[in-house]
Each structure stands twice: as C-alpha cells, then as structure tokens.
C-alpha cells in the first residue's frame, strides 16, 4: 500500500498481529528472510496437519505408520513456525533443535521409504525425501538452520 517503512509498521501495529510483529522486531527471527521461512513453515504445518488429521480419522488402518509420522512432522513444523514468530534467544535455540530433528526425520524417512516401501503403503510429507512436495521438505530445515545461525550474529 505504501513504500514508507514507518507507515507499514504503523499498519502492522494497528492490526491483530501487533504483539507478534513487535516481539519479532526485537529479535528479528521472523523478519527479513525469516518472513519467507515463517510462511513456508506455516504452509507445511497446515499441509502436514490437515493431511494427517484427515488420514488418521478416515483411513487409519491403511497405513498407521505413515499417518503417525505425518502427525509428528506436523507437530515439528508447528513448533518451528511458532518459535520463528515469537523470536528470542530461547526460541531460536529450540528452533535449531527442531530444525535438526526435522532434517534427521526427512533423511530417515526418505531413506526408509526407499529401502522398505512395503512399510509405507501411503505417502507421508517426508516420503522419498519430500519428492511429492517439490523436495521443499529437505531444503527447508537446511535453510532454517542457516538462517537461525545468521540471526544470532546479525
């Protein structure tokens, strides 16, 4: 709407996200490149959560392992999203742990689905290293870790 950064901030304060925007401004985790990460992590939270909720309710018996893993990945994504928005040193450290966990999850599940496809009659977000999701699941934790490291120095 405007090119004036001050006016943009005022608009943000007027909105519902006032508290969030201010706390993020304090630490900068959800600002700049972090804003893009918040969006992508938000998308993946919704994607993994809605997928696992639907599948756990509608077709649990078909592939319980895959659906439970989807639910776990949704929880990890949700936690990282919240940490990025909240900001602060504690949240940054927690997010680093979760990003590492996420990377480990993608690599483990990715290898597992290739090594033993019969354990996974249905797909998860992390199947085949996230191939069904344009490989974003494997790039996201790496980018997240890089950004979280840089956010401390900057």
């Amino acid at each position: 709407m405007t090119e004036d950064p001050a006016a943009g901030k005022a608009a943000g304060k007027a909105g519902k996200t006032a508290g969030k925007a201010e706390s993020a401004a304090r630490t900068g985790l959800g600002q700049g490149p972090g804003r893009l990460l918040v969006m992508l992590y938000g998308v993946f939270t919704v994607a993994a959560a809605s997928r696992s909720i639907y599948q756990l309710i509608a077709q649990y018996q078909e592939a319980p392992l895959a659906y439970i893993l989807s639910a776990v990945s949704a929880a990890v994504y949700a936690f990282i999203t919240v940490s990025l928005v909240r900001g602060g040193e504690g949240a940054r450290k927690a997010a680093i742990v979760c990003c590492a966990l996420e990377l480990l999850g993608v690599l483990t599940v990715g290898t597992w689905t290739l090594a033993d496809p019969s354990a996974f009659p249905d797909q998860t977000v992390w199947s085949d290293y996230g191939m069904g999701y344009l490989f974003i699941p494997i790039f996201l934790p790496v980018t997240g870790l890089l950004w979280l490291r840089k956010a401390r120095r900057g």
Partner: peptide, 11 residues
C-alpha cells in the same frame, strides 16, 4: 498481510 509488515524484498 505478511508483506504489509515486511517492507523489504523479503515481503
């Protein structure tokens, strides 16, 4: 809305 509160290239 996210780009409204992020007035940089990242928005």
């Amino acid at each position: 809305f996210m780009s409204l509160t992020e007035r940089t290239r990242w928005g």
